[in-house]
Design a binder for these strands. Sequence first.
DNA 1: ACATCAGAGCTTTTT
DNA 2: GCTCTGATGT
Length: 731
Amino acid sequence: MDINKITDSLNNAQREAVTAPSQPVLVLAGAGSGKTRVLVHRIAWQIQMRQLSPHNILAVTFTNKAAKEMRGRIERLLDIPTQRMWIGTFHGIAHRLLRRHAAEARLPDNFQVMDASDQLRVIKRLLNALNMDEKIWMPRDVQWYINAQKDEGIRAKHLPDTADPHEQQLALLYRAYEAQCFRAGLVDFAELLLRALELLRDNEELLAHYQQQFRQVHVDEFQDTNTVQYEWLGLLTKDQNNLFMVGDDDQSIYGWRGAKIENLTRFMKEYFPTPILVKLEQNYRSTGNILKAANCVIAKNQGRMDKELWTTADDGELLAVYSAFNEQDEAHFVVERIRAYVATGGKREDTAILYRSNAQSRQFEERLMITGTPYRVYGGLRFFDRAEIKNALSYLRLIANRHDDTAFERVINTPTRGIGTKMQDDLRNIAREQGISLWAAATLLNTRAIQVFSALINALSEQAEGLELCAQVQLVVEKSGLMEFHKKDKDKGEEKVENLEELVNAAKLFYFDKDNTENMNELDSFLTHAVLESAEQQGDDADDCVQLMTLHTAKGLEFKQVFLVGMEEGLFPAQQSIDDVVRLEEERRLCYVGITRARLQLTITHAEARWLYGRSTYPKPSRFLRDIPADLISNVRMQTTASYPANSAKPSEFSKPRSTYPPLMSTKPAATRTPIVTGRYKTGQKVSHAKFGAGVVVRCEGEGDKESVVVNFKQVGQKQLMLAYANLDVL
DNA sequence: ACATCAGAGCTTTTT
DNA sequence: GCTCTGATGT
């Protein structure tokens, strides 16, 4: 293949980056400037020009999605298999190294990765064992503390001596936590990275081996790397001149979990004078007006690496700004606008509602539901996080490793088998006193009920031997009694059964790549997959859906039409960030990210009154809104005939009861239109189900009403929100 | 073992 | 005000 195919389609800056000599390269890539493209083409170029084998390529991303995308695009561009390429997330690659060299990393070779909720359980148990009050030592804070240390590469033994009793206790906890994880063969997310760093740091030959193997190292979203990741990259590429990084300081929005935006400048300084800096400033995504707005907002940040997006595209429409009375009005406005958009041929899936915090989705969901508009909320519970799935996985984990205390605790009495709090406490005490696992403690205590449990696990383990993965999962789900147990769940039984079946299905579909899974067997591999690649929500709704997500989740995505909602001081920027310059700058970057998601149309809304934490608030419009020049903005009003509370009404009057909110305009004639009934209903009424978009349509009979009522219900949070229409066919 | 209740908290989150 | 958690009661 000739080189033209790789460089022809690039603009000058992109080509400069792709064809840069073997030196450290930093590509500052603005939003929508073709960053993935550059990464992919650079890899292709390396393989073509320097005759590198795919085996010599390392490419690291933060998300599985990005890794998958990159792999796909390389395959398409070069038409070569990419199996042998090391493309993956930081965690995935670290994990792979640790499996390969478990002994050198001083890990048991059947170690398992645990997710954040498992980690929290370990910490809670520890606090309990150490007799520490959870009110003072809040598990979340402890977890945060431990992770923050690990992100910085600090082990418990490295912690400086301190006279502060609080610090001392934290250090003690950290130490105990490390010991407990080791005993149970569990590794948390931060540990994967830190362990992988130590592995290379402490094993010269190993390091040399990988330095040689990875002739080129590529990093995506470099601004999101934390200290450990940065140092790990540094080790791997030391004196190799082969680090190629892409990032955008203006899109650094994960500082709060350890990402160091300074890594960009640190890199430029440490590698001085060699690094080549390339800026990608041409934007191919948004209209001129949207870009101008984005540039004005981000310009207020200090110490940026000077960069400004431009485009050859038209100015496009003005940004629409809507000042809502309250959050309900805001939602109503947005949804009406989406409906108008759809009515004129627009697609719902091209539309996104972006908000600062998840709690804000509620109002929009209600409105979308009332109007029967299909939508999808991102960022809910993931499949592998569901209780029933975690239970099933815990049985599998115990089969793989009896000493996995977290798994043990989860299922010792699930389904209930007469091992209550008392007996569990006894087990924990024995385990703690003797420094052994709960499983080992169980063999010592050895009561009748415990024997039953141990026998069950052993039997499952024996029977699973030699079976196909999905048969193993099937076996466990059935024989453990989980299926039956979850079937009994009153309102979610059906869903849980479905999920368990889906787990068996997932096992069936799971591809076990023997060559790349190092020392793992298929079950280990599947368990790791469940934690590390906790797949996107199952693709249940393929239909045309409005997309709802937080600004963080939206990073890396684009939509024709974007609604940036809740643009108010206290919400966005978040209250907790307002008094801190560093945090405020991150909020501003978040805003920049939000604006630059829009391709054609950006609508910003804010409410003049908002019901928050049980009281009315009257927030000011966000400062970010003020940073957008007035001549880019058109203030818009509601485009419907729905009656509204007068503008002059006292805020408290229109922000009060939800039930008095004006009914939705229906396409049906007024005579057949009935006000919407919104309220809480007892679940488990006589209802029959039928699929409907994101929700379910339910026929509700004999509810005191003269006519039969069609109820569109969907679970929002914990409460069953029901919206009823009489004689109104929302479909 | 299951239901009910009081109390706290209430940004963002992939891995 | 809502929602989750853990403790308390039957």
